[in-house]
Design a protein around this nucleic acid. Structure first.
Lengths: 205, 205, 205, 205
DNA sequence: GATGAATGAGGGTTCATTCAT
DNA sequence: TATGAATGAACCCTCATTCAT
């Protein structure tokens, strides 16, 4: 096996481990997660897991960084100069599809915040900057009469809540809608329902 | 001390324990929570804690039942025959105030769902019944042209998400708004912002 | 069992543990010692050991403090105004008897120094003070012509080495002398031999 | 690279490993030493280390054999027919210089004895033979009135203790003397001080 | 009712070593 | 020869729980 093949294989297993870790951390939080459990989800032994990671703490931090990176990536190339309607449809659609595709990332994220965000705290400032930039765009819409006056920060938080909800509580939603499971949820329908609520909700008087 | 006094004192300490348990379970989930941690939050020793509870499992289940009961209690006496606007303002206000007053109940609830709701699953049918009853009211509004056509289940879920958000992520919201901490959040302002979004968002075309 | 009895029993077992720890640390050093091994020497299970101690580190530090306290205690009430001969006979006798009675304390002490004294370092200043005080007494002897000129610090170190030797290497000494084991060493004979060497070695020209 | 070069390079790395092993075993004893630590000190990976050695046990035994060989080597060619004074000055000087140059060999040796000398025990008989031969020389001195009557075995042990001391506890000695570190110790001064004590201490009445 | 003692199971991690290439 | 991968044993320690008083 060439050196490149080895590196590739290594990268592969590291990804498997990270995904398993995110699932375990999402389900049980940092303290509740066990390396045993992570190993099981990754289909390897605990010993082998510990060969690839340096510690539970480091694995947690890396998974979190990965999640934050994914969240940012998700909006690369989005056109912030569009009018509110296409922009918000685009935004909500992307966000919801991402969150339904990787619900565990959303869960782990929320779990981290619920315990006081001791690790995430380091990354917050970046997130705040992005929120502030978006707030200026929204304020522009208000000034131009494209939407009714709203708090531009709370609006973002509320849209985030509406999409995040379906990642955290997908099973419950599916149950309430009479569906067999969360994988039966129709992203397009959910996106449409949320977009309708938000867009109508922003319509100027 | 009379027998009644003893019983009262016992009741008191059991409540202290339950509150401590909710806080601990909220922060670390079921597996991550430790009876040690719960005892500490309750200001008693681990030994004494185990004298009052039968097991961690039982304490968890009881705390969860308590949370569900609180959620139901909260809407006792709400007038479901009101028109949409006053009803929803009332509903959102109650829900948000409750959730901001006891954010740990919301967090523990979400943590339970994130791990697959193994315990909560038993109670879901009741919750579903309530949702279905409310759905009929909402469908009545739609039929009468009081609000635009919406999915009556998703609407409830979305309102729930908007309020729940501020319990789970109060610290983040406060940070983004430039406030010193989650306790500085103004429930009235948040309720107004959410109500405005929802009510406007439901306005018939 | 009364509260006092309990406390007494606790004290007893803590002493047993400390002695076992000193023996294990003496034999294998800090890193090489295992709590398993300590428990075995104390005649208890590892779990029970960990009920009584907070950590291996803390146990190590406490054992070391105990050893240093013992060393100091040993010279309480010694009369430093005596002439050299009785004083040194007294000193060497005490030191040697102590060291032969508790050879493991001497071994653990030396093991700590051999790894760089990371824990002991904190106590050194006190030890240095005592050495300096004794040095002044010795210099007085030299000034008064009671002994030949010597380095007062090195003299102390050398006497220390001569006594310490029989604790560290008692087994070897016994073997060389044709004795069955280190417990067969005669403290009086060893003390006499050392005292003779030192006292003769200090005789003024 | 010729076969001889390869063999030479191999010999070189084996020496590096042995020195690293001695340092690690000296600091932490057999159980406390880690092959990881040895590899680090040798500047190679753990994997590579294990390629060159067969096991930790074997490496330990070989290092110990090396130390014993060094100790013997050290007195090759010493003239045992000299009178006591030049002989002992020569002996003490050699021993002290060796021990200060390679303090880790002395430490590892002592650590092995402190744990009961399970490996060294095999070599003891040789060491005993040498001691007995030297004892006969010393007894000759006593018979001829060159020195006062002493136990010829204990005398050797005590001289050994005085020199060994500065290897084991060099740091402490330096500290007490107000020096920056053990490397600042002056071998000649120490040798003179020890020789003076011993030679004076052996002067016939 | 309440508290110290004790314990079996499992936590994360390191270890010396072997395997595969 | 040399290096990444892998592993079983053992490491220290914490856990929820039970026992004894």
């Amino acid at each position: 096996m060439t050196r490149a093949d080895l590196a590739e294989k290594r990268e592969e297993i590291l990804q498997t481990i990270r995904d398993a870790a995110i699932a375990e951390f999402a389900a049980h939080g940092f303290h509740g997660a066990s390396t045993q459990g992570i190993a099981q989800r990754a289909g390897i032994t605990k010993n082998r897991l510990h060969y690839y990671i340096t510690s539970k703490d480091a694995l947690y931090a890396e998974a979190l960084r990965h999640i934050v990176a994914l969240q940012e990536q998700q909006f690369h190339g989005i056109d912030m100069t569009q009018p509110p309607e296409p922009f918000l449809r685009d935004y909500i659609g992307r966000k919801l599809r991402h969150v339904l595709a990787y619900p565990d990332t959303a869960r782990m994220f929320t779990a981290e915040i619920m315990r006081g965000a001791p690790v995430l705290r380091t990354f917050w400032h970046e997130s705040r900057d992005a929120t502030m930039r978006a707030a200026q765009v929204i304020e522009g819409w208000v000034r131009n009469g494209l939407i009714r006056p709203v708090d531009p920060v709370l609006l973002q938080i509320h849209i985030w809540a509406l999409t995040q909800q379906h990642a955290l509580h997908g099973a419950e939603t599916a149950f309430m809608l009479g569906l067999p499971g969360p994988e039966a949820l129709d992203p397009d329908r959910l996106a449409e329902e949320i977009a309708a609520l938000v867009l109508t909700g922003l319509r100027p008087a």
